[in-house]
Structures are given as C-alpha cells and as structure tokens.
Computed example of a mutant assay.
Amino acid sequence: MAKTNPGNFFEDYRLGQRIDHAVPRTVSGGERALYHALYPARHALHSSDDFARACGLPASPIDDLAAFHVAFGKTVPDVSLNAVANLGYAEGRFRKPVFPGDTLRSTSEVIGLKQNSNGKSGVVYVRTEGLNQKGEVVLDYVRWVMVRKHDLNALAPETVIPDLAKVVPPDSLVIPEGLDFTRYDFTLAGEPHRMADYEVGEVIDHVDGVTVEEAEHMLATRLWQNTAKVHFDATNRADGKRLIYGGHVISLARALSFNGLANAQMIAGINAGAHANPCFAGDTVRAWTEVLDKAETSAPGVGAMRLRLVATKGGEVGALKGADGKYLADVLLDLDYWVLIPV
C-alpha cells in the first residue's frame, strides 16, 4: 500500500466535504522577525508591544497577513497541492489578533465545484477557518483554486458556484477587543494622516518597488509550510519557472503601502481578491491604492477604510483593466480589503 500522499485532484472533491488540515503550528516572535525580513513591513502596531498596549491591546500581535499565511499554508496539501493557480478570495474576516504563543490550525469546507471546458482541470471553492488553541476562529475566508484532474475520464460534477458577497458589510467587521486609537501616537506610527485625510476615489502611489528574488519567495513559502508543487518544482510548469505564491505578492504590496498608509494598522476584512497575472523571480513589484469607502466603528477612535490595493510590475498608477475588461498584463494583484485606521 502506498504511504505517500499525491494530493487531491479535482475529481476527488465533493460538495459539502469537510477537511481538517494537518500540522497545527505554534507561532512565536520568530514569525514576526522572518516576516519583517522577507517584506518591508513597518506598521507600528505589529512592531512594538508598547505601541500596541497604548492602542489597548495586551501586546503586539503578529502581522495579520502572517496569520493568514499560516492558516492558508495548512490547507495547501489538501486543497491546492495539484493547483494550476490560486484564483481569488472573498468574504474574509480577521476575527481575533494572533499573538506569539498561539497555536493555529485550519479546517475547510468545499462549497463549490466547476469543471473547466478543457476537461483537464476544474475550480474548487472552499471556505476556510483558522482556529487558535482555544478553538476560537481567528480568521475565515473563501478562496477558489484551479486544480488539475488526474483521471481525465472522470465524470464532471454538477456545477455549483457559491453566491459570494461582493463586500463584507462594515458593520460586520470584528474589532479586536480593547482596541482604542484615542491615544494614538502619529509620530511613532510614521505619518500624520488619519481617516478624515483620505477621500473616496483618491489614488495613492506607494512609490517604492521590490525586486523578487528566487531565494526569498521560496523561503517565504517554506516558512508558511505551503507545499504547492508550482512554487518549488521547476519541472511542474512547461516554462520551467517556479510560480511565486500569491500571498507573497499580497504581503509585498501591503508592506509597500506603508508609504502613504502607515496608519492603516490592521486588516479587518477581505472583500475580493484576484491574482491577475503570474509573478516570477526577477519581477519588480510596485503598488498603488484606491480609497473605495470609509465607515465608522464602535471602537473609540477607530475607523474602517475600504481600499483597493493593486500590485504591478511597473504599469501606470491607476491603470487596472483594458477596454476588453481584462486585467492589464503588468497587473499582478487586485485586492479589495478593509483596514482599521485612526479617525
């Protein structure tokens, strides 16, 4: 009997199937140090215990996206080991901060299936929850991924595409317990801009760029225990290239957005996300943001701002799609998300 795991193929998934993912992970300060070494991440609340305590938290949590990557990485052996590409996200909520010492695990439910017209692959939709050692949900999200078929003669399942919300309602965002920005130190945070200083429709050029190195993206993917073959095995693609994990691009873009959005301290929700084009080593990632909406929250001094974060390979700031409605070739990421910011 074979003892190794070749991963699931498209025909292995069933609607309603629940998957408890293996290998829980206890996070430590090492996650923060490595995250900040891999990305130019500088948001003060995730860098300083003293700053976080002044904002009402017991200590500095690890970066929201670091927690996301840990939870995401747990799912890869069961969901996307044989993926062609991770396609998109929706209905993401960050429900509790993750602190050093917390142990994270993940569980997923298959909520949609659609075989592609070529009969060689299909799209699997899953809703994933990341839980801590107390069984509390720290984050949850929906993602869809294109997965290869192993048996090309396997019958196509009934097509079910979930009806997903286009936007997480701002009144459903979860504000971390105790979060209070009334004593917020703008000098230590690095910029003076509060929510009132931003206008809906405003586009912010984050100016800086980061050239992706092969070693860095592979180290990052290993850090999150992401085992997808397309990220490691150069023979897995016809062009002989390792596809960079889309989350690596998300983290690069989020870190670059510090320049202009230093006070967007925490991610509260993910409304939508698309990896528009593949990213490979040698590409230089740049970013710009469009302000989409603003909302009040119940927490003192805390507002919510909806942003569109776009990562590119150097295209024109503000340019996203062509006349045909398709993403421009230099657009890597289109991420619609909510952040928490001083009012």
Rank of each mutant, 00 (worst) to 15 (best):
G314S: 09
K3V: 15
D64Q: 01
G73W: 14
D293M: 06
A264N: 10
A54Y: 07
R237G: 02
G209V: 04
F94E: 01
G92F: 02
G190W: 01
Y89M: 13
T284G: 08
G314I: 02
R32W: 11
G240P: 07
S298D: 12
G260V: 09
R194P: 06
K134A: 15
D283F: 00
A268I: 00
D163Y: 00
F232G: 10
L309D: 01
H69G: 11
L173T: 09
R53I: 14
L87P: 07
G209T: 11
S251F: 01
G325M: 05
L188Y: 02
A287D: 06
F232Y: 15
K321G: 04
E216V: 06
P192E: 07
I267C: 06
L223C: 07
L309M: 12
L45H: 06
Q265R: 06
A33H: 13
G201D: 10
G325A: 07
L332S: 10
F51M: 13
A238P: 00
V339P: 05
E177P: 11
N132V: 03
A276I: 03
A44N: 08
V110R: 10
G73M: 07
D208P: 04
T107S: 14
E216G: 06
S28K: 04
T107C: 13
V343Q: 12
T221E: 09
R308W: 12
G314F: 01
A220N: 11
F280S: 12
P169H: 09
L179Q: 00
I111E: 06
G112S: 04
V27C: 01
D64I: 00
R194S: 15
K3F: 15
A189W: 05
T26I: 03
D163V: 12
V339Y: 01
A85W: 11
L320A: 03
A295Q: 03
